[in-house]
Every structure is written in C-alpha cells, then in structure tokens.
C-alpha cells in the first residue's frame, strides 16, 4: 500500500485548485490528474472498500438543498474511506426554512471548522457564489441543470477503465440534454479528453446551438447507434421542465428507450451507462440495464473513487495555502 500512497501523494502536489465547481473550467491535464488519483485510490482501498487515513481529522459537510440519495451517500462514504468525519445539513429542518440565506448558512457551517462543503442546489452558479464567499473548499454536487462534475468524472473514469483511452471514442448522451447537469459535465470532460460527443434526444430538449461548441446534435437514435462506443442514457428531468417537451412518455420511449431490439444493431462492445436514478422502461429497458453491456454499477463504485480523489485534492490544495482566485 505504501507504494501506491506515495504515488498518490506525488500527484496531489500538482493540483492547485481549492474548489471543484465545474468541468468546463478544468484543463485536460487537471481532469487526467483527478482520474489517475481516483484510479490509484480505488486500488489502494481494494476497490473502494478499505479505509485510508489521508484525511484523518478533517470534516466534510454535505449541504443539500435538493433531494439526493446516492450522491450524498457517495460523498459521505468517500470522506470516511479517507478517514474524515462527515456531517449532513438538509434544507428542511435547518434555518434555511426560517429565511436564512444560503451564504449565511454556509458561513455558519464554515465557522464550525468544516474543511469542505459539498453543495447541491437547484440554481446554477450557487457553488460559484459560495466559493466566492467562503474560505472553506466548495465541491459542486449538482447545481440545478448546470454541472455535476463528479458525475462527469465518474462516467469518464468508467469509460477509461473499460477502454483504456477516451481519445477517439464516440460517446452519445441520450435524452434530456437541456435539463441535464450530467450531460454538461460529460460534454466538457469528454471533449477535453478527445472524444466525439453526440447529444441525442427530442428537438425540444437538444439545442442546435451545441453544434457551435463542437458537439454533434442528433434527433434519431437509430441513425447514430451503429457509430457509438458508449451510450449514456440520461434521466428525463420531469421536475425541471416547465412545460412537457414531448407529447407522452410512451412516445419518448418508442423513440429513445434503449431496448433489446436496438442493442442488436449496436456495436458488439458498446457500453451502456446511466447516471441514475433510472426510469426503467423510459430511458432503458431492464434487459439492457441489467445486461452484459451495462456498466451502471461500475459507475456507482467509481463514484466513490472520484469523490475520494477530489476531496483529497481540494482539501490538500487548501492546506498547502493555495488561495482562491477572487
């Protein structure tokens, strides 16, 4: 274990950011550094199950203003695997329901000696707002439909684990691109590492403007399917849609659900991913979700590895006295 830990330690010195807000602002080098660190930590913890003491004595706070099960649990477990303490704040039952502002809430948590705040919030940019106002490290665990950097990283880690290399792969993000933070983080991360990214879904949920950023836009899944190395099936974000952007769930499933019949026309080694929670029968049928091409559960395990890596990196940078760009 000591060899692996020292390798991990060497890598951490190259990281200089004290927050993790989005993947758009990271360089390809920084993304590779996180992925390499996550891979090392996964190995050092026997597949994310054993404990290390890299963050012993530190405290991570979950500050979740939107419901979450797996991301919150994953961050908590990741922190504990590295020896840190964790504490949870939720919006209901705290002073937020009494009208306190998000900045004041976060400053109070900071004053309790927390080393990192993991924030989930309905509004894009709120992690950036907190990062401007706190000295504590801020990690974005999803800011509305904007970004979910650790989800993007764990998706990319899973692809890299299966394929070794991202460069040159064709990855399709299928579904509700407009309201998906997973889509945005994947688009930035994958493109920086050299993948060809296709955004595929109904025209009301996939803007043509993505083409201006070098993303291929497709409305017909069956047309692009034979070219895809990876399909990432995004959940339809019913709760974020002001007006339903397609006539019915049935019609959506007919056009975009990944089912056995479509699998037959896909590449033999295609990877099927989903950020979860999945709507079985809407984005993906059970036979595909649970089939041999699915790496959905690998994604969950890699989520732990990625979150261990980013917690260790940003807290490490803060402890080395690196300050935030203001």
């Amino acid at each position: 274990m000591s060899i692996v830990e020292s390798e991990v330690g060497t890598l951490a010195e190259a990281w200089t950011k004290t927050d993790l807000l989005d993947l758009e602002s990271l360089s390809a080098e920084e993304i590779r550094l996180i992925l390499q660190t996550a891979e090392n930590l996964k190995e050092a913890t026997d597949g994310c199950s054993k404990k290390l003491d890299l963050l012993a004595g530190r405290t991570m706070a979950n500050l979740f203003f939107e419901d979450s099960t797996r991301t919150k649990t994953s961050f908590s477990l990741a922190a504990r695997r590295l020896g840190a303490d964790t504490v949870d704040f939720s919006s209901s039952g705290s002073s937020l329901s009494k009208g306190e502002t998000v900045i004041d809430t976060a400053k109070n948590i900071e004053a309790m000696g927390v080393d990192a705040v993991v924030l989930r919030h309905r509004t894009p940019g709120t992690p950036h707002l907190l990062a401007q106002n706190l000295d504590t490290s801020v990690l974005n665990a999803g800011d509305g439909p904007h970004e979910h950097p650790t989800q993007g990283l764990l998706d990319i880690m899973t692809i890299r684990e299966q394929r070794g290399e991202i460069n040159g792969l064709t990855v399709a993000l299928v579904g509700d691109i407009a309201h998906s933070r997973t889509a945005r983080s994947n688009i930035w991360g994958l493109k920086k590492l050299g993948a060809h990214v296709i955004a595929c879904g109904p025209s009301t949920l996939v803007s043509r403007r993505w083409e201006e950023l070098g993303v291929e836009v497709a409305y017909n899944l069956d047309e692009i399917l034979p070219r895809c190395d990876v399909l990432n099936l995004l959940r339809i974000q019913f709760e974020r849609q002001l007006m339903r952007p397609f006539p019915s769930v049935r019609e959506y499933a007919l056009l975009y659900a990944m089912n056995g019949e479509r699998m037959a026309r896909a590449k033999k080694d295609i990877l099927i991913m989903a950020p979860g929670p999945i709507n079985r029968g809407v984005e993906v049928t059970p036979e595909v979700a649970d089939g041999p091409h699915s790496v959905i559960l690998h994604q969950v395990t890699n989520g732990l590895a990625v979150r261990m890596a980013v917690l260790w990196l940003v807290i490490g940078a803060a402890e080395r006295g690196l300050s935030k760009p203001r």
Partner: peptide, 17 residues
C-alpha cells in the same frame, strides 16, 4: 420568459440558466 434570469442563447444553454 417564465423563470428566466438571462438572455436565451448559447451562454444560457451552457450555464443551464
């Protein structure tokens, strides 16, 4: 403009605002 906070265009698409 319901719920809108900024001009609708490439930037709002990227920021998901």
């Amino acid at each position: 403009t319901s719920g809108g906070v900024m001009h609708e265009g490439l930037v709002s698409m990227v920021l998901a605002l």
